[in-house]
Amino acid sequence: MIYMDEKRLKAFEDMLKAILSQYDSTVEKMAKLKAEGKEKTVTYRQLFANKLQLQAILSYYRTYGLLENEK
């Protein structure tokens, strides 16, 4: 039972790392496009939608006290 709990915790931690990485990557790509004046492109809008979705997921982590480092 303990082994399964540790495995599950590791999976949650890995998921959080992946979401944070995707969020950071999305923000960087959006900043690059914005600097190029491409805020009205489909790519920028898709990235914006992805950013909102990632923020929603992170808000759940935050609500349940699962985020260690706040940015």
Rank of each mutant, 00 (worst) to 15 (best):
68 E>L: 06
69 N>G: 03
32 K>V: 07
22 Q>T: 04
60 Y>H: 11
65 G>D: 14
47 L>E: 02
26 T>M: 13
5 D>K: 00
9 L>Y: 00
11 A>S: 07
47 L>S: 01
68 E>R: 07
43 T>Q: 15
66 L>S: 08
20 L>M: 06
4 M>A: 08
67 L>T: 00
55 Q>S: 09
69 N>Y: 03
64 Y>A: 02
28 E>C: 11
53 Q>M: 08
23 Y>K: 12
46 Q>R: 15
34 K>L: 14
39 E>V: 10
37 G>D: 11
45 R>Y: 05
50 N>P: 06
38 K>D: 13
24 D>Y: 03
29 K>W: 02
45 R>A: 10
2 I>P: 13
9 L>G: 01
9 L>M: 02
17 K>E: 12
54 L>K: 09
15 M>Q: 12
7 K>L: 12
57 I>N: 03
31 A>C: 05
1 M>F: 05
19 I>Q: 08
29 K>S: 09
17 K>T: 05
6 E>S: 01
2 I>F: 11
67 L>V: 00
36 E>G: 09
23 Y>C: 09
13 E>W: 00
25 S>G: 10
32 K>R: 05
38 K>W: 07
17 K>I: 03
65 G>T: 02
52 L>G: 08
25 S>T: 07
28 E>N: 14
30 M>C: 11
38 K>E: 15
59 S>I: 13
61 Y>K: 03
8 R>A: 10
8 R>P: 04
65 G>P: 02
22 Q>P: 07
12 F>V: 01
70 E>A: 04
16 L>T: 01
13 E>K: 00
54 L>E: 15
69 N>S: 04
23 Y>G: 09
21 S>Y: 03
15 M>K: 09
58 L>W: 08
37 G>A: 14
66 L>N: 15
65 G>F: 04
27 V>Y: 06
67 L>M: 01
60 Y>A: 12
38 K>A: 13
21 S>W: 04
27 V>A: 10
18 A>Y: 02
9 L>K: 07
1 M>R: 15
9 L>T: 06
61 Y>H: 10
37 G>C: 10
15 M>W: 00
68 E>C: 03
68 E>F: 01
26 T>A: 12
18 A>Q: 04
42 V>I: 13
43 T>C: 06
51 K>M: 04
36 E>R: 05
23 Y>S: 03
52 L>E: 14
15 M>D: 15
15 M>G: 08
11 A>L: 01
60 Y>S: 10
9 L>Q: 09
54 L>D: 13
24 D>V: 06
3 Y>H: 11
3 Y>G: 01
37 G>S: 11
32 K>A: 13
36 E>S: 04
36 E>Q: 13
4 M>C: 05
30 M>A: 12
11 A>H: 05
32 K>L: 09
41 T>C: 05
7 K>Y: 13
48 F>G: 14
3 Y>K: 08
47 L>V: 01
14 D>K: 05
68 E>P: 06
49 A>D: 11
45 R>C: 03
